[in-house]
Structure formats: C-alpha cells, structure tokens
Simulated scan of single mutants.
Amino acid sequence: MLKEFKEFAVKGNVVDLAVGVVIGGAFGKIVTSMVNDIIMPLVGALTGGINFTYLKFVIKGAHGKVPEVTLNYGNFIQNSIDFLIVSFSIFLFIKLINKLKREKKAEIVEIELKSSEEVLLLQEIRDLLKK
C-alpha cells in the first residue's frame, strides 16, 4: 500500500495539481485584494458610498435577548460581484496563457517548416551528387 501511495504521489499529474492549487490560492488572494481594495471602493463611490455587505431585510425584530432575524441580501450581492470579478479575471488570465501558447506553437511550426525546407534542399543536393 505504501508503494502504491508513493507511485501515486510522485506522478506528474499529482505534482501539477499541487502546483496549480498553490498558484491558484495565491492568485485568489491577489484577485480578492483587487476586488476589496480597488474595485469595490470605486463601486461604492459610484453608488454614493453604499456598502453592499450591510444591506439586509429584517424579517423579525429583536426582542430582549433574542436577536433579530434578517435576510442578508447585501452580503449575497457582494459575494456575487466578487465571484463575477474573480471568474472574469481568471478568464482573462487563461485567455492570455492560451494566446502565448498559440504564439509559441506558431513559432515552432515556422521553425519546423524552415527546417523541413532545408532538409528537402539538402536531400535534393544529395540526390544530385549521387547522380
């Protein structure tokens, strides 16, 4: 069982997944900071200083030691905006990575085409020399 676990743990996919999780966590912190520290203050300024987090609908008021029952829709709005911004940021990041991959692939194909043209030319020269 230990041997099987060792084989599983050192597979490339597991290591890649671990790296992805660590990088994803760090990227998530960056995006969360961007949302909380840059975007939401701007949204608050545009909406007259409204902080969505504290918006709520009181279903039942507080009575003595019993706290009020509320529907915290502002927190839901805040989390929804956070989600949209995070998902859009990840989309843009993945789009950039795919663009860079396509450019790299195009360079490789171009190099292969040049090398194949050179190979064909060398083969023609070889064939002519044989004759």
Rank of each mutant, 00 (worst) to 15 (best):
L42A: 10
G25D: 04
L55M: 11
I111C: 06
L100N: 13
L42I: 06
T70L: 01
Q78D: 10
E107I: 06
F93G: 04
Q78L: 10
I23W: 12
V58P: 07
L129C: 06
A26P: 03
I30Y: 07
M40Y: 01
I85Q: 00
T32H: 08
R126E: 09
A9N: 12
M34F: 15
L46A: 05
F52T: 04
V21R: 06
K11L: 09
K101L: 14
K95F: 14
E124D: 13
G25N: 08
V14G: 10
K29H: 09
G49N: 01
E118I: 08
T47D: 02
A18D: 03
S89E: 04
S116F: 12
G61T: 08
N13S: 15
I23V: 15
S87C: 07
Q123M: 14
L42P: 01
Q123D: 15
Y73S: 02
F83T: 08
V31C: 04
Y54E: 09
D127I: 06
L96H: 05
I23L: 15
I97T: 07
V10A: 09
N51W: 03
A9G: 14
E112V: 13
I38P: 00
F88C: 05
N79K: 06
K99E: 09
N72A: 07
K6T: 15
S89K: 00
M34R: 00
I90P: 04
K11P: 02
L92A: 10
V14H: 08
A26Y: 15
Y73L: 03
K131E: 14
T47S: 11
F88W: 02
H63G: 01
R126D: 11
N51L: 05
G74E: 02
S33Q: 01
L71H: 02
I23R: 03
A62R: 06
L84W: 05
L100T: 07
